[in-house]
């Protein structure tokens, strides 16, 4: 009994102390952000002007679809904006999750599609947003991307997809899975007709998205240090019963293994894209 009491006291003390250590200063997140890599505090204003790249260590913060559009495009006209997911299977809590994501991101789904101008080259673009249910690909995401590919094919635009996704959308089951086949088939047709497809991998691109359109680009670019792979880290660790090396499935790793063409820092992204587009006959 005594022992228990002593232990209890020690535990309380421990918890008290531990709490003290982790107390954060209350700084509103829209004023100051802390870099995940070097833990420097950077003002959001400074971050914004630096395209959300840490000025100290070059760490690339996640950016949402709108931010990506303003980073790359001089003009952007959205298409298929009104597509909304219906929970036809009545999957438990799916409606709620959709609603939360819609409120938080102010998007209807996890991808924005449209025709934009990069420099002065017109380009069909799909920008995924990982803030919306981890950027997972449900029927709407699959349909919007397929439509965009078909539009690019018809109008002879080059195609750019900025990928970020945890993979297939579990709540939609098999209908989500077959979107992988649907989008890949559309890209095959587009490619057969001579279209240029640039795939841009950003953090993270995994699962069903990496195993379909993300890996099918004529040219595959990636942002530094982003995660690219098929199976999740936890799943692999459970399978092989070993800890994975730090750089496993990172863009640099994939580059070394030969699965992506180039790693492009965010600052040079627009310029690189313009060069590539022009080399493929994009109008200037």
């Amino acid at each position: 009994m005594d022992l228990f009491k002593i232990r209890q006291e020690k535990l309380t003390l421990f918890h008290k102390n531990r709490k003290k250590e982790t107390i954060k200063k209350e700084i509103p997140s829209h004023v100051i952000e802390t870099c995940e890599s070097c833990h420097t505090n950077v003002s959001v204003k400074e971050l914004k002007s630096n395209h959300f790249v840490c000025p100290e260590c070059g760490y690339h913060f996640k950016i949402d679809a709108h931010e990506r559009i303003s980073l790359l495009c001089d003009e952007f006209k959205e298409v298929d904006k009104k597509f909304i997911t219906k929970n036809i299977e009545n999957f438990p809590e799916y409606d709620k999750k959709l609603e939360i994501s819609q409120k938080r991101t102010k998007l209807n789904e996890a991808v924005i599609c449209g025709i934009g101008k990069i420099g002065d080259v017109s380009c069909a673009m799909a920008m995924m947003d990982s803030g919306f249910m981890m950027g997972s690909m449900g029927s709407v995401v699959g349909e919007k991307i397929t439509r965009l590919v078909e539009l690019a094919d018809k109008k002879k635009y080059p195609l750019l997809i900025s990928c970020t996704s945890g993979g297939a959308r579990m709540q939609e089951g098999i209908l989500s899975l077959v979107q992988m086949a649907k989008t890949s088939a559309a890209i095959k047709r587009f490619s057969e007709n001579g279209g240029l497809y640039i795939s841009l991998l950003t953090h993270p691109t995994t699962g069903g998205v990496s195993a379909s359109f993300a890996m099918l680009g004529d040219i595959i670019l990636a942002e530094p240090n982003c995660l690219v792979g098929f199976a999740g880290k936890r799943v692999i660790e459970n399978t092989i019963k070993e800890k994975l090396p730090e750089n496993f499935q990172k863009a640099e790793f994939m580059l070394e293994k030969g699965f992506i063409d180039r790693i492009v820092p965010r600052k040079e992204l627009k310029e690189t894209l313009i060069k590539i587009l022009k080399m493929h006959g994009g109008h200037s």
Binding site: I84, K86, E143, E172, L175, V178, Q179, A185
Partner: peptide, 12 residues
């Protein structure tokens, strides 16, 4: 066939 898969799951 694959193009039409998933159509019931959305509305415009």
């Amino acid at each position: 066939k694959f193009r039409e898969m998933g159509i019931p799951a959305w509305k415009m």
